[in-house]
């Protein structure tokens, strides 16, 4: 148990910045650049942790606490995902609600720390973040219900750490929305562009404009852990039975990189529609999971 926790924690902390590196490398490859090193994020974090901070006079204690809370909650959520079969540290009916609501708590503090500065840019980012995540959550939950039905368990970590996969059509119908939501939640193209700064179309980056030093480091790290978390879930949905399947997260990162390279960022107004279609796919999957048309067992 304790060992599981330590392994999960360490994996989340260590591997997550690497994912960002892989994505950036892939994107650089597609655009014909050499790109920054795989471990650029580690250097960034180290540098930020060392730095002095600058803080807006408008802010309050919320702004100081927020990075810690965001980081811890995201990390805790990541730790809940079994990294290999049977390593789920906690399992009960509806455990994924806890997982995603921990992310929700992190998001809550991210948003109010953004609003804390009183900047209109950060307010804008906060507003979008609040809206899109509210749209994304039902999609994820329906997908998870499908997966739970396939595995015949009410605990998500059991399902992820368990053995059998089900009908591949249904699994892919459950995975695709997950993937879309992952892009949305982690501020990836086509929802958001992590590489631009200070454009009015931004969501995540704009919210941490006023963070600096350690605060910024924790925020960035938390963001990468979140990416790790989502890719790990996808990996475990597709390949529940394998021990080293967590390594496939890097493949996911490559795919993200490819997607970011070939797709343009969509307009803000279309984001809800995108999430809505993801929801429809998720519902289709769920519907198939109990309809009599499909006999998979």
């Amino acid at each position: 148990m304790i060992i599981n926790i330590i392994i999960s924690t360490a994996a989340a902390l260590v591997f997550s910045p690497l994912l960002i590196g892989i994505i950036n490398k892939t994107k650089a490859f597609f655009s014909g650049r050499r790109g920054s090193p795989f471990f650029q994020m580690y250097f960034d974090l180290y540098r930020l942790l060392k730095k002095d901070a600058v803080r807006s006079g408008t802010t309050t204690i919320v702004f100081i606490l927020a990075p810690v809370i965001v980081f811890c909650c995201t990390l805790a959520a990541a730790v809940l995902i079994p990294i290999s079969p049977g390593t789920g540290i906690i399992s009960f009916t509806g455990d994924f609600v806890l997982l995603f609501y921990l992310l929700g708590l992190a998001r809550f503090f991210l948003i109010i720390s953004a609003l804390d500065t009183g900047s209109s840019f950060e307010g804008m980012g906060a507003s979008r973040e609040a809206f899109f995540s509210a749209m994304a959550e039902p999609v994820v939950f329906i997908s998870i219900l499908t997966i739970l039905r396939l595995n015949g368990t009410t605990s998500f970590t059991d399902a992820l750490g368990g053995g059998g996969a089900g009908n591949w059509i249904i699994i892919s119908l459950a995975t695709v929305p997950f993937f879309i939501v992952m892009l949305a939640e982690n501020a990836r193209i086509p929802f958001d562009d992590p590489n631009t700064h200070l454009e009015l179309t931004m969501i995540h980056e704009v919210m941490i404009l006023d963070n600096s030093g350690r605060g910024l480091a924790l925020m960035e790290w938390a963001a990468s852990i979140k990416l790790w978390l989502f890719s790990l879930i996808i990996v475990r949905i597709i390949l529940p039975g394998s021990v080293l399947s967590f390594l496939l997260t890097f493949v996911i990162a490559v795919i993200i990189g490819i997607v970011e390279s070939v797709i343009a960022r969509t307009t803000l107004l279309k984001i809800p529609q995108l999430l809505f279609s993801a929801g429809i796919i998720a519902f289709l999957g769920f519907f198939l999971s109990f309809s009599k048309i499909f006999v998979w067992s």
Binding site: R55, T59, S119, G213
Partner: peptide, 12 residues
């Protein structure tokens, strides 16, 4: 050990 400087919110 780090210093924290109070400034105005960055107005971009």
């Amino acid at each position: 050990r780090k210093t924290v400087t109070d400034v105005e919110t960055w107005g971009c």
